[in-house]
């Protein structure tokens, strides 16, 4: 049994700071096994908030310093576009399928950023990273339709056969720039005004 307990913990994320305390495993396990979902967020609980802040502030300071000195290197981002998530970096081209209003030549900014990363750090949004922290600019370079796709249905012995041909609209987008413009964990006092028109 002890072996099993250790193996399960090995699969959970490890945090090697002393201000976390492992909650007893038995309190987690029944909820996992008996219900479909669990409200237990994590098997760790914060004992000392002050101590905890000290730990993560150091990490965030490091990230901010790297960004300020422009030493972060190439950034990548996961953005939410037209109902799908794409992992992009500067210079990428991706295709958005289905009807999407932007026209060829339009410059757009992709605002729903779910994640930004460099080689040394990753900023994960819950679900989006803080508004105004990252700027992702892109250009629409092509709008066309896909090749003809066949939608064929047949039921055997039922004299039923349908054949449909369709082409879906596609939009090709070039990513021009990804950059961190704000400060991590330090949002401006008033947000949401960037896109408002008064």
């Amino acid at each position: 049994m002890a072996g099993v307990v250790r193996r399960i913990f090995a699969n959970l994320p490890r945090i090697n700071t002393c201000n976390y305390v492992k909650t007893p495993l038995l309190s987690i396990l029944p909820s996992v096994t008996s219900k479909f979902y669990s409200n237990v967020p994590t098997p760790y609980e914060i004992v000392d908030a002050q101590e905890d802040r000290k730990t993560y502030q150091g990490v965030i300071d490091n990230v901010n310093r790297q960004v300020a000195e422009k030493k972060q290197g190439r950034l990548f981002a996961v953005v939410h576009v037209a109902g799908k998530q794409v992992k992009i970096t500067e210079g990428d081209v991706f295709i958005v399928e289905g009807y999407w209003p932007p026209d060829a030549g339009d410059k757009i900014s992709l605002d729903k950023v779910l994640l930004v990363g460099a080689s040394d750090f990753t900023l994960i949004g819950r679900p989006l990273v803080q508004r105004g922290l990252v700027r992702v600019e892109a250009t629409v370079i092509e709008k066309n339709v896909s090749h003809t796709k066949t939608h064929f249905r047949k039921k055997r012995r039922k004299q039923y056969m349908r054949i449909n041909f369709y082409r879906t609209p596609r939009t090709m987008v070039r990513v021009n720039r990804i950059e961190i413009v704000g400060e991590v964990n330090h949002p401006p006092a008033v947000t949401g005004l960037e896109t408002r028109i008064f």
Partner: peptide, 28 residues
């Protein structure tokens, strides 16, 4: 309008990937 916004004749051409990148991985 469709002809105007296209970059070539792509009828009868299937894209294998809907994404092109020169940097497939940044963190390895």
């Amino acid at each position: 309008n469709l002809l105007k916004t296209q970059s070539g004749n792509t009828t009868g051409f299937r894209y294998r990937k809907l994404l092109h990148t020169d940097h497939p991985s940044i963190q390895g």
